[in-house]
Amino acid sequence: MKILLTGAAGFIGAHVARLLLARGDEVVGIDNLNAYYDPQLKHDRLALLQGQSGFRFQQMDVADRSAIPALFAQEKFDRVVHLAAQAGVRHSLVDPHAYIDSNLVGFTNILEGCRHHGVQHLVYASSSSVYGGNTQMPFSEHHGVDHPVSLYAATKKANELMAHTYSHLFDLPTTGLRFFTVYGPWGRPDMALFLFTRAILAGEPIQVFNHGKMVRDFTYIDDIAEGVVRTLDHVPTANPAYDRSQADPAASHAPYRVFNIGNHQPVQLMDFIAAIERHTGREAIKQLRDIQPGDVPATYADVSELQAWTGFTPATSVDEGVRRFVEWYRGYYKV
């Protein structure tokens, strides 16, 4: 297939690209290569892809209302994997307009491109953040997600609503994937594993929020990438048996689905830090802090719907995933 992959230089995007290329798909990757974090890391991810047969890259912003339609018209994609977004819960308190431009305007451009050019299936990144203030665990796609606690989360919920509208109005098959705390080699420098590993190896203190009483469903990058590709291959269809009188957020009369992708093995933050200490061979200097605005104390994914739909369940242990990350980090930064 010929696939548009947005956010191709990103953490998840680069791993998804490798899987698609390995099975023989043609991948056209786009990314704006912004400076939200060190662009060199993005260029180095791309360098691993650009020598591979079937991969082409264009620097492009999904919010560009002239470039994106032209790209769709020229390339005639079979399917689209949309991972480009302004990421980060905390940064959305600082620069909200970046989230509107990328996550809302950009997503509209992608939806319009799919609508007007016969795309067979749009798979897009949502987030566990949509569960917001929910406390019922594990988080299920059948739960309501009407109380976001950050603008980032609100834009991801909006993406799901926008996708449903296009599935309903234009019969565009769409699948949203709610990622749960993705980590692993080539990860983002603003995420906990990267920040903690760098500080611990440098002998610097780490900031532990909510006094360490955080629980996260840490999900290894290879499992995330596999989940993306598996769902890309399973195109949703309209469900005429859907009962509109008993609305279910996980289903629809339209060709629309949403799925959690998480390790379904929530881990205490202190245990996560212990794994980093174990594989770096260093003890962390911990500074306990209050929970930050926009953060939630716990996440936990119910992945039964993903397993039923694709036959796949994430399974990489945190200990193994952290070991692989530390090994990559030491090699990449030569520490």
Score class of each variant (00 low, 15 high):
142 H>S: 13
146 D>S: 14
260 N>S: 04
162 M>H: 02
268 Q>T: 09
222 D>Q: 12
256 Y>G: 05
180 F>D: 07
201 L>V: 03
236 P>T: 03
173 P>H: 05
273 I>F: 08
170 F>G: 03
256 Y>F: 12
164 H>K: 05
277 E>N: 10
156 K>C: 13
271 D>I: 10
244 R>P: 03
271 D>G: 03
184 G>Q: 06
234 H>N: 09
157 K>A: 03
240 P>W: 02
190 D>N: 14
261 I>M: 09
180 F>S: 06
276 I>H: 04
197 T>A: 04
256 Y>D: 03
239 N>A: 04
204 E>F: 10
143 H>W: 15
199 A>H: 10
138 P>K: 11
220 Y>G: 06
212 G>L: 09
194 F>N: 15
183 Y>V: 05
172 L>A: 04
165 T>M: 05
220 Y>A: 01
253 H>F: 11
237 T>Y: 03
159 N>K: 15
230 R>I: 01
141 E>K: 03
223 D>G: 02
234 H>I: 06
176 G>V: 13
238 A>N: 03
246 Q>K: 14
161 L>E: 04
192 A>P: 04
277 E>T: 08
206 I>Q: 02
255 P>N: 09
166 Y>D: 01
196 F>T: 08
187 G>Q: 09
244 R>Q: 10
170 F>N: 14
219 T>K: 07
222 D>S: 08
226 E>R: 07
229 V>L: 00
191 M>D: 13
220 Y>H: 15
170 F>I: 03
240 P>S: 10
173 P>V: 02
227 G>T: 01
244 R>M: 11
270 M>Y: 04
238 A>W: 00
206 I>D: 02
261 I>G: 00
156 K>N: 12
269 L>F: 15
259 F>E: 00
163 A>V: 07
259 F>H: 05
232 L>R: 02
197 T>S: 09
179 F>W: 13
166 Y>W: 08
177 L>R: 02
247 A>K: 02
261 I>K: 01
189 P>K: 05
138 P>M: 02
217 D>W: 13
153 A>P: 08
146 D>L: 13
158 A>L: 08
190 D>H: 15
151 L>P: 11
260 N>W: 01
162 M>Y: 14
201 L>P: 02
200 I>K: 00
193 L>V: 06
266 P>Q: 06
164 H>W: 04
199 A>Q: 12
217 D>Y: 07
232 L>S: 00
267 V>D: 08
168 H>K: 12
175 T>R: 04
143 H>T: 06
195 L>W: 00
182 V>P: 15
168 H>R: 13
205 P>K: 08
147 H>S: 15
264 H>C: 14
178 R>T: 07
189 P>I: 08
234 H>E: 03
144 G>V: 10
270 M>I: 14
216 R>W: 14
144 G>I: 10
